[in-house]
Structure formats: C-alpha cells, structure tokens
Nucleic acid binder design. Structure first.
Length: 417
RNA sequence: GCGGAUAUAGCUCAGGGGUUAGAGCGCCUCACUGUGGCUGAGGAGGUCGUGGGUUCGAGACCCAUUAUCCGCCCCA
C-alpha cells in the first residue's frame, strides 16, 4: 500500500524548502523593522472561538472547518485563520494594555475543508500581521505599507492594493437594505447560491459572478455613500496616508470580506498571475469589535494575512528563481589511505562554517567528482597518497577547472577567500 | 458541496482491444583502475492510480473509488 498526502495538502520537499524559508525570512525581517514580533499559537482551538468571531453564517464556520471532538469530549478545530487565535492568546496572557499598540507577526499553516484547486488547499499557509490597540488610520496605513513593501522586496514588484470601507454596524445594516432592494427583482430567479447570500450576508451579493447581475452590480451606489462621518473621515485619511507613503492603491467597492469581525477598512492585493480563478494574494482589514467579542476591553485593531503558496505561485509565474545555498567543498578521497585525513579536513571546513560533502561509500574518484559537480560545489579538494605524503591538497575550482596544490594548513583560508 | 476533464518509468509524455508496454530527459556501469561537465556503448527502473466487471484476450471498453486539474462556491 502506497500512501499519498491527504487531499488538498502538499509536501514541501528539500529542493523547495529554501523558497519557503526565504519568504518567511524576508517577512519577519521586514515586519521586525516596524516592531512586529512573532507569536506562535496552537494548531487547534476551541471551535467556539471561531464561531464567535468569524460568525456562524460565514463560509468558514458554516462549511469549511476541520472540527473534531477529542477523547475528553472537547469540541475543537484546526485553526481556519490566524487572527482569532492571536487575539485569544493576547487576551489570555494580558498582552493588550491601554495606549500601547501590540504588534504581532506569524507564519502559519491554517485549515479549511473546501474543494482543492491550484493555489487553494486544505492546508494553506499564510504570513500574518496584527496591530492591536490603535484606531488611527495610520495603523491601517502601516499594515498596508508593510504588505506593499513586502511584495516589492521579494520581487513581485509594485502591487496595487485595493481598499474599501464597510463602515460600522449601523452603516452596514442600512446598506444591507439598499442592496436587497437594488437586487430585489434579480433575486426572484437568481441562483440558489445568490438567494442564500441574500439571507445570510446580502453584502456578498456584490461579488456574485452571475452575468445577469452584472448591470445591477455596476449601478448600485457604493457603500462608501452610506458611511457615517467618522468612518468616512477615517477612510479619507487612510487614502492620504497611502498617497504620502507612495503606495499604489485603488478603491474597490465590491471588497466585502466574508468574516463578521471586520469594520471600516478592508483591503486586498490581487494578481492576475494566479490562475484557477484565484486572484487574492492577501486580504486584511480592521476588526474593532473582535476583542470585545472575546471578553476583552473594546480595542481597535487591524491585521492582514498574506498567502504563502500564492506568493510563491506569482514568483514562479514571473520567472523569479531563488538559488538554494550550494556546497563550498567536496572532499574527494583519491586513494583509500586518505580516508581519515579526508574526514578530518571535512570537519575542519565545517567548523569554519563551510558546507562540505564527503563520499560515504568508498566510491571511485570519478564518481565523487561527479557528485561534487551535481551538488554544485564550488571546490573539489582532492587527497590521495601523494598529497598525504606532502601534506597538501589538490584544490580544483569546479567551474573553471583550474587546479592548484595548497598545504593542508591553508585549505580553509584558500577556500574562504 | 455541485458540474466537467485527467491519471502509463524519478520527470515530461506517446501507445485508443491482440506476443515480452515505449521515447526524451534523469539515474547506474564502462570507455577513463588519481579528475566532474562533452561524446559513445551498455544497463536498471512500470502490480499502466486502486478495486471490480465485459472479453478467448484489457494499459485501452464499462462501473466504482481515490487523487489532481478546470468551472461554480469561497477565499489565502
């Protein structure tokens, strides 16, 4: 019986792992410059945490959770997103203090039970940021700035961040009626999906792909027209701040977000390089009501999640290749009597911080050189009877084939130069 | 969750009822017993995704199942 990885999961193989490491390194380095520090929370949580925060009617909670009951009868689930667990942990450990913004970052797998496709998995990964404790549009701008800088830094280039505001609860309630009456006629013979949306979350009618609704979508007045003064001012200031930071953005009135906890600012970065109908590279927004919902003092906050496999997919589509580290030296045992000396030299090279390879299986010299070549080693350090007697190493530059004889004592220095 | 397509060597793919299933690339050996890449000659590697069925005979046809891909849903 041969096993496969479970549906919708992927193995990250040794030849590819460096790309993931690089992505995470760039992410933590960049966000660290803004003061973000990593938080690591458990892979599973009490299922109620997500029902409370994302909302019972959200797609995540209503049909995409990997939930289970453990042997102690606890109803748990693999985390379907990163924000709620981070906030639960922050509250549990009293990390949230008045007038002290809390900045947290993470790179995590998360879990959603859906139909897999390219760029859409059951165990995807995301890099997330949470900025807790500021109501200022400067907080929204900070998160968006990091996102924009991140994509630029890894080579995806300048991205256009699409922003919208969905206001506060009253505004949304008002707008919900606007949407329902605007789409009223259409809903009579709309798809089951869209009719279900009309009941569970009318705002999501805005992103229906039904061609019959295209005109209605284009003629509906945007939610921005219904924002309260405060939300309107917030949104305007955010735009000024983004302009000041020279971040390219556009306004997309149809970005609505499927989770209940968002308020005011919502945003995403899209790419046309993803294929499979997937376009979202990252998504985020402000969630001023979430912490209160979890029993904490009302605390305004903003966050974002950036999809890792989607970033990698775009990088690949752009033809951007990241080189893995390569061995510095392959120590070649030319004759059997040099075996011990070869091992000793290899140890010395590694102590000096140089990746060094050695044949384990008494292969002939030609084979060892072939391995060295295949591994992409810079140098082959060859030792046989002659070198043993002279206390030297024959050092070959594998790309130029230039060869020289150096004393063993100078090997490390020569290779490092 | 709904609709469609696909599954043959490590990889990319041919073979569409009839002996022992093929190619390119990759891998191993030798030419080259102390020198990789290039070349040449050999070689290894497949329960044809899995399980049933039809047939004298199935990699091929039928059914089921699993996985992947595409569309919907949704998002990262």
């Amino acid at each position: 019986m041969r096993f496969q990885s479970p549906r919708g999961t992927e193995d990250i193989l040794p030849a590819d792992a460096h790309r993931w490491q690089r992505l995470e390194r760039e992410f933590f380095e960049l966000s660290g410059l803004y003061g973000y520090r990593e938080i690591r929370t458990p892979m599973f949580e009490d299922i109620e945490l997500f029902k409370r925060t994302s909302g019972e009617t959200s797609d995540i909670v209503s049909k995409e959770m990997y939930d289970f009951v453990d042997k102690g009868g606890r109803h748990l689930c693999l985390k379907p997103e990163g924000t709620a667990p981070a906030m639960r942990a922050a509250l549990e450990h009293n990390l949230i203090q008045p007038n002290q913004p809390l900045r947290m970052s993470y790179a995590i797998p998360f879990f959603r039970y859906g139909r897999p496709q390219k760029g859409r998995l059951r165990q995807p990964h995301q890099m997330g940021l949470e900025l807790v404790g500021s109501a200022s549009p400067a907080a929204d701008a900070e998160i968006i700035e990091i996102v924009a800088k991140f994509y630029e830094r890894v080579g995806i280039g300048k991205v256009r961040v699409m922003i919208n505001s969905i206001g506060r609860a009253e505004c949304r309630a008002k707008y919900r009626e606007v949407v329902l009456s605007h789409f009223g006629g259409y809903l009579k013979d709309a798809s089951d999906d869209d009719r279900a949306k009309a009941i569970s979350n009318p705002l999501r009618l805005l992103d229906t792909k039904d061609s019959n609704a295209a005109e209605l979508k284009s003629t509906i007045p945007p939610i921005l027209n219904y924002l309260e003064d405060e939300s309107k001012a917030h949104f305007d200031q955010l735009q000024e701040l983004l302009t000041e930071a020279e971040i390219g953005f556009g306004i997309a009135p149809d970005i609505v977000r499927g989770l209940d906890y968002y308020t005011d600012t919502v945003f995403e970065v899209v790419s046309d390089q993803l294929g499979s109908g997937q376009s979202s590279l990252c998504g985020g927004g402000r969630y001023d009501g979430l912490i209160k919902e979890l029993g904490g003092a009302p605390t305004p906050s903003v966050g974002v999640g950036m999809g890792m496999e989607r970033a990698l997919l775009v990088l690949e589509a752009l033809g951007i290749q990241w080189e893995d580290r390569r061995p510095a030296v392959y120590v070649v045992r030319a004759t059997e009597d040099a075996a011990q000396t070869c091992r000793e030299l290899a140890r010395r090279l590694r102590s000096a911080g140089l990746e060094t390879h050695l044949d384990l299986d008494d292969r002939k010299m030609a084979h060892q050189l072939k391995q060295a070549d295949r591994l992409g080693a810079k140098w082959a350090a060859m030792i046989g009877t002659d070198e043993l007697a002279a206390g030297t190493v024959t050092l070959r530059d594998l790309s130029s084939s230039v060869q020289s004889v150096v004393p063993m004592s100078e090997l490390v220095a020569k290779v490092k130069s």
